[in-house]
C-alpha cells in the first residue's frame, strides 16, 4: 500500500480558514454530543410515555403503544430520517412545508428528533418489560394503599422498573450516540461528517477516521462510566444488584 502517513495533519490549518483539522473534528464531536443528548432526552420522554401505555390494562392504551413501537422500530433509521427531512415538508400544507424547509439548523433538529423517536420505541419496549418483570403484588399494594394509577407508576413502578432496565438502557444510550452518524445523509456535519470532509480535503483518510473512532470511543466511555455510576448510586441495599 502506497500511503503517505501524516499524523501531524491534525495541527495543520484546514481549508475553511478557521483553525486546524483538529478544530474541525472537535466541532463535529460537539455537534455529535449535542445531537445525541437531545435525541436521548426525546427517546427517554417518549419511550417512558409509550412504555407506560403498553403496560396499562386498557386495551386502547396498549394498542396505541403497540402501533407506535411497531411504526418506529420496523423502519430503518435512514429511511425515517429521509421521511422527516425530505418527505414530510412535501406532505404538509405548502405554507407549513416551506416554513419547515427554511428552518435554520434543519438537519440538526431533524436528526435529533428522528433518532430520538427511533430510539424511543426501543426504550418503550424495555420499560414495558421492566414494569412487567415487577411482581404483580407491587401494583396491588400501591392500589390497596389508595394510590391512584398515576401515583403508583410515579412512586412505585417506574423507580423500580428503571433500576431494573439500567444495563440495557446504557446500551440504548450508546446506540443513540452512534446512530447520530446516520444524520450525515441529511447534511448534518457531525463527527463522521467532519472526518469525511477532512479526508476529502487532505486525503489522509486513515488519520481522519482513526481520530473519529477514538472520539466516538471517548464519548461512549464517558457514557458507560456515567451510567455505571448512576446504576451504583441507585442500587438498593440487599436487593438484586445492590451492594
Amino acid at each position: 500500500m502506497n500511503y503517505n502517513w501524516n499524523w501531524h495533519i491534525f495541527f495543520e490549518p484546514n481549508p475553511t480558514g478557521a483553525g486546524t483539522y483538529l478544530d474541525m473534528l472537535v466541532s463535529g464531536l460537539l455537534l455529535t454530543i449535542k445531537t445525541a443528548l437531545l435525541a436521548w432526552i426525546i427517546a427517554l420522554i417518549f419511550g417512558t410515555i409509550v412504555g407506560i401505555l403498553r403496560s396499562l390494562p386498557s386495551k386502547a392504551a396498549s394498542w396505541i403503544g403497540f402501533c407506535y413501537v411497531e411504526f418506529f422500530r420496523n423502519m430503518p433509521l435512514l429511511v425515517q430520517l429521509f421521511l422527516w427531512f425530505f418527505v414530510l415538508p412535501e406532505l404538509l400544507p405548502s405554507g407549513a412545508g416551506l416554513w419547515l424547509k427554511q428552518l435554520p439548523n434543519a438537519p440538526f433538529w431533524t436528526a435529533a428528533i428522528g433518532v430520538g423517536l427511533f430510539m424511543s420505541a426501543r426504550v418503550a419496549v424495555q420499560l414495558a418489560a421492566g414494569i412487567a418483570s415487577l411482581p404483580r403484588g407491587q401494583k396491588n399494594a400501591a392500589t390497596a394503599l389508595g394510590l391512584t394509577t398515576a401515583q403508583g407508576y410515579r412512586y412505585i413502578l417506574l423507580p423500580m422498573a428503571f433500576r431494573i432496565i439500567m444495563p440495557p438502557l446504557t446500551s440504548e444510550f450508546l446506540n443513540t450516540v452512534k446512530n447520530t452518524s446516520v444524520a450525515i445523509t441529511i447534511g448534518l456535519i457531525e463527527l463522521t461528517g467532519q472526518a469525511r470532509a477532512m479526508q476529502e480535503f487532505s486525503f489522509q483518510v486513515f488519520e481522519a477516521f482513526t481520530a473519529a473512532t477514538v472520539m466516538y470511543l471517548a464519548i461512549n466511555i464517558v457514557v458507560v462510566t456515567g451510567m455505571r455510576f448512576l446504576e451504583r448510586s441507585l442500587a438498593i441495599p440487599g436487593y438484586i444488584t445492590g451492594k
Binding site: P135, I156, M160, Y239
Partner: peptide, 8 residues
C-alpha cells in the same frame, strides 16, 4: 402473602 413492601 408476599408482603409487597416497596423495595426501593
Amino acid at each position: 402473602q408476599h408482603f409487597e413492601l416497596f423495595p426501593h
